[in-house]
Amino acid sequence: MSNYSSGFRDMQKPPTWRELLGSIIRDPQERQRIASDLGVRTITLMRWANGESNPRLQTLHQLLGVLPHYRETFLELIHEEFPDFSELQDEESVQSQPALIPAEFYTRVLRTLANIPKVLRFASLGDLILQQALKHLDPHRLGLAIIVARCLSPSHEEKVRSLRESIGRGLPPWENDLEQHAILLGAESLAGNTVISARLIVNQKLNENSSLSPGYHGVWEESAAAAPITLEGKIAGSLLVSSTQPDYFLPSRQTLVQDYADLIALAFSPEDFYEPECIELGVMPPQRVQQPYLTGFRQRLVDTMLQAARNHQPITITQAEQLAWQNIEEKLLQVSFQSEEG
């Protein structure tokens, strides 16, 4: 918890959410960041903190997502001023959120699919669908991240051993482009369990160690849902959706996650799908353990392509990426094995 929160606990008089906000926005950079993420002016934040005006309740819920480290403190203090705060959010959010993907968006996807070259299909359709899913699943911008974790093509005709985070988009507090933070996922992850079971899986409270649902608590994540990406009974990976809000994935949102997973299957090629018996995910170490192996990834690609050229067997950047990820996967599986042995 922050220094602000611990400082407030030492005060005799309990603080209000406005006092907490006022303390946080004393930092000009933080004030500007919060205002930008909420889509308001900095003077508006100051008026809220001074009690000169009231934000809309849905904006208060956005505030929880923009300041995830203060979430529990804010939630308790806001509830003191607005007793119906939690209940109103669920009702407003669900009622204002369309239950189906708009028909016109399906038309746009099919038109894009018909007009783009195959080499651009995954990137173009992936970005188009993820951006739409972000707006649809999080219309009030409370904080959402969506990642496509695709099966990493096995080397030497072996089974699929991991999933690679290949494309991702987010709303604050996440960055919009999440690809630079890509890691490998395995049987320990929510996405991995979804691929193994070939069904949608939800964890509504990632920060509770006692939860029986798979998955682990990442930065800013409070709840998550993952749906398999399938075609004719084969699996290409998983669509992983994370929220800053606990218990966010109500049945209607779960249906939408699966619908978007079915739609994004159009971005894949037939050879990207694997029979379930060809998938045997291993356990991948946490992100902090993977990071040293991922550092310098771009340089590794260049070196791989140069070496292939020297051997008079030139390869494309896509083939070089595949080889580099397979090499990282092999090392990380060994790390996990040694950790289990130790």
Rank of each mutant, 00 (worst) to 15 (best):
R169L: 09
G170C: 09
P173S: 06
E175D: 15
E175K: 13
N176K: 09
D177E: 15
D177S: 10
L178F: 03
E179G: 06
I183T: 13
I183R: 12
I183C: 12
L184R: 06
G186Y: 03
G186V: 03
E188V: 02
E188A: 13
S189E: 08
N193F: 00
N193Q: 15
T194E: 09
V195E: 09
V195Y: 07
I196E: 10
S197R: 15
L200K: 04
I201D: 02
V202S: 09
N203A: 05
K205M: 11
N207H: 11
N207Y: 10
E208R: 13
N209V: 01
S210A: 12
S211C: 11
S211F: 06
P214L: 10
G215Y: 07
Y216T: 12
Y216W: 10
G218P: 00
V219T: 15
E221D: 05
E221C: 10
E222G: 04
A225Y: 02
A226W: 05
T230D: 00
E232V: 00
G237K: 03
L240C: 02
V241D: 03
S242I: 15
S242Y: 00
S243I: 02
T244V: 15
T244I: 10
T244S: 14
P246N: 05
Y248D: 07
L250K: 06
P251Q: 09
P251E: 12
R253H: 10
Q254D: 00
T255P: 00
T255Q: 13
T255V: 11
L256G: 01
L256K: 05
V257M: 03
Q258H: 03
D259S: 15
Y260F: 15
Y260T: 01
A261R: 08
D262R: 12
D262P: 02
L263P: 01
L266K: 07
L266M: 12
A267L: 00
P270T: 07
E271S: 14
E271D: 15
E275P: 00
P276W: 04
P276Y: 05
E277N: 14
E277R: 13
E280M: 05
E280C: 09
L281E: 04
L281M: 06
M284P: 04
P285E: 11
Q287G: 08
R288F: 14
R288T: 11
R288E: 14
V289W: 02
V289C: 02
Q291H: 10
Y293I: 01
L294G: 03
T295F: 09
R298T: 13
R300G: 10
R300T: 12
L301S: 05
D303V: 14
M305S: 10
A308N: 06
A308C: 02
R310C: 10
N311L: 14
H312A: 11
